[in-house]
Design a protein around this nucleic acid. Structure first.
Lengths: 99, 99
DNA sequence: TCTTTAGTCAGATGATTGTCTAACTACTAT
DNA sequence: ATAGTAGTTAGACAATCATCTGACTAAAGA
């Protein structure tokens, strides 16, 4: 069973988060998670291959934006909302409101 | 005399802005401008060559973050604060507060 | 007019990025 | 056991990016 690693948010720089959110695909992931709560990767509709999808989740996870846990064959992921609001106040609101 | 072009903010996507702010050097530029108001490029201390500096200003300008006007040999630039606050509420605050 | 100052442009280079296919692992269900 | 489902990994590729040097332009000042 795959074990995901998540950074301590204090050690994530603003530039890293911005970088992670600089791709429309990843912004779509964050929005879906924010709107619908915890989801499996496959439950978010994206027009890319499985491998690319996996890559985007990696990037978001490395930037501290999402938390992933394993459940059976699925990887359930959610926004690290509380921590993010503390570390980068206004970030999530910005992503969700700007269209 | 160089004439700079500035995008209409309505047509700038969130991903573009995030991309522009994904470099520590450019974040430093935005912070300096926000704190000190309109500045010439050369008045912001950055550890990169003149050409690279010029490139970073290009990127920020193309993303709608800064406005540049020519004054003599200098290029005076400032944050597009009012417009940005309307188009991406919370963005500037985020950049300035996160350290 | 010559020099200095401020910045741009062109071209090169190495690193990073987004994407894919194909093969693989690990659970679930039949 | 076998097949299906969910996701990862490795490797490749083209595109983009940050950076530099060096040559250039344009305005200001002596």
């Amino acid at each position: 069973m795959k074990c995901y690693s998540h950074p301590v948010l204090r050690e994530v720089a603003l530039a890293d988060v911005m970088q992670a959110l600089s791709d429309p695909c990843r912004i779509a992931i964050v929005r879906a998670l924010a709107e619908r709560g915890e989801l499996a990767c496959s439950e978010i509709q994206l027009d890319v291959s499985k491998a690319t999808r996996s890559h985007h989740f990696d990037v978001l996870r490395a930037a501290g934006l999402i938390y992933t846990r394993t459940e059976g064959t699925k990887c359930m992921t959610s926004i690290r909302e509380t921590e993010l609001n503390r570390r980068f106040p206004g970030l999530l609101k910005l992503v969700l409101s700007a269209k």
